[in-house]
Write a protein that binds this DNA or RNA. Structure first.
Lengths: 190, 190, 190, 190
DNA sequence: GATGAATGAGTGTTCATTCAT
DNA sequence: TATGAATGAACACTCATTCAT
């Protein structure tokens, strides 16, 4: 239970960097400073390790997301919080959150697997939240009139696109949260 | 009976779907309806196959992108064309273009490899184009005053984020091009 | 029947240079200036090609060797002729003769195969000839008294050792025939 | 239960018997009583295994050969010791020493490879030693007058030829060392 | 708990050979 | 006869995983 805390971040980092298939158990053990078989004490295997990392990421992610659902502020405020949530998250735990938004490894593609289920749930929840938000905003006149579903998808693309660039360390610009928020606000608020 | 032509789309599809490492040569051969060794007739190996797919994608991509550089229209027009270019491209060749925008396999990460070099070139070229465009627009008053570099990155995130969702078949909404263009226009044009 | 003459020397050369297993049929076809499947018209396969080369080499070799058996000259004269035969042969057809004296490919090691049979026959015949020769020479006082069997083996080692060095192009010294003959003569003739 | 020690002799035997290309890793593993992947635990691959066997053989061989260089005895005595060295060696370690004297696999033919470098060094060192020896002997009148270089090559051919026959188990005669020594002595000493 | 040794299953790749034309 | 296209069988090698200690 002691070394488990070394393994998870090491694995998360390598998975995020090289993909699930591109990462070997021996790489993980070296990065974690343990021997290879030790991985099999706290985890059933490579799949399980991956799954647990993802699940931990998802758990925290959904906790934060759920807190947004019962939102009392304006529609724009809610979108702003949504953007903040994701941008803050990817700064805190770039590997876990990047994995959360990346594709499932091919071999874990069965629809009952935690990986697929959660990724689907995440997309649905994000979509629902944004649709609700946009509908509210358009109805109340807070937002200009936009096609709801398409705009929701667009904002998801913007958020996940940025997280991807950030998670892969391709983009390291600071202060993007405010810029993104303003960008969306100008587009939606009349 | 030239089965060689089946290999490229089959491989592109699988690579886009499962990643480079997650795709086996035998999967490719089955998807292409040929036997495994036939892959090695026109291609030197799995790496070469991947490289050639990417290179073909990049060649066409850069051709289209270069055509945008000497643009005579307004700044917004140019951004619109940029969005159109990418959205049209990903509709035409979802697999190839998705690969073009996805990450390099870990093992092909040496900086001289076509894969890395082109992906870098692509990001640089996109950034340069957008920065130029935004500077023009802001200077002429066509656009509101925005932080140039950050906004360029944001638009790249939006475009690539969308292409990713689209390339992975996660999102299949039609008519997104116009919605995206309008979304950006409202944000930038006063 | 036309291109067969191109294939044999090309194959013989490559087999001698790289060994049977180290030589591929495509190398042979290129060296012979033909396409790969053409090899299968005059030959049943790679094994057969190898066998035929060996057989041709052996046929000529045994022809020459048989001519030595009914020898009328002195014992030393006969040994001299034996040395001459081998040294001349390896100069004329270095590849074929080298193969003749080299090891059988592992996969052709069954004792009924032409390859094994001939190599055995060759060693037996050489041994018989030398034993006969040495016995004659010792009995007649032409030679000093030497252990017959061992000396026969030694001369075989000398001859095959030289042919190997020569066949592999490791040694390219000229005029070795006379030197070898003299070397043996001084050792045997009192 | 260190099965690693079984691998080297098993591999040496098979390599000597069937050549590098003719020997498969699965054959080696079976002969060593281990499973195939275990070969890759102590060795980087088939090439490395081959190289290490050769290197061990060469190291011991050169150690023994170097001991002969500073020789105080007569020229004939030195040659006798040289013959003894080789004949004793091939009796002790028939596989390793046979490999040491056999040809490099075609694919390891680059001139910097241990294999090529050592085989060259061996030939040069043997040649130098014999030339020196013969020159001494001829100058002092211990030997009859012989062409130095050619005779050196001849003795090398004799020694390596014998080692080959012996290493390949083609010839199993005992007591050859004395016979060979006498054979050479009679030829050189007046 | 911890590890060095070991392995079953599979991967990319090569090669001798055949087939359709 | 000749060849481009195609393949079955094997090869060296890797990897996630387990076992003996």
């Amino acid at each position: 239970m002691n070394k488990k805390q070394n393994i998870i971040p090491a694995a998360a980092h390598l998975f995020a960097d090289q993909g699930f298939d591109g990462t070997t158990t021996i790489q993980i053990s070296r990065e974690a400073g343990v021997t290879e078989p030790l991985i099999y004490y706290p985890f059933k295997g490579k799949d399980d390790l991956f799954t647990q990392i993802l699940e931990a990421g998802f758990t925290e992610y959904f906790n934060r997301l759920d807190a947004l659902e019962n939102h009392s502020g304006s529609a724009m405020q809610q979108i702003e919080d949504l953007v903040s949530l994701h941008f803050a998250f990817v700064d805190e735990k770039p590997d876990e959150i990047y994995l959360t938004f990346s594709t499932c490894p091919a071999k874990l593609n069965d629809p009952n697997h935690v990986c697929v289920r959660n990724i689907k749930r995440q997309r649905e929840q994000l979509k629902a939240l944004l649709i609700n938000c946009l509908e509210r905003g358009v109805a109340s006149g807070e937002f200009v009139s936009v096609p709801i579903l398409e705009t929701a998808h667009l904002i998801i693309a913007l958020i996940t696109g940025w997280m991807r660039l950030r998670g892969l360390k391709i983009d390291s610009l600071e202060g993007m949260k405010a810029v993104a928020t303003e960008f969306i606000r100008r587009s939606l608020v009349p």
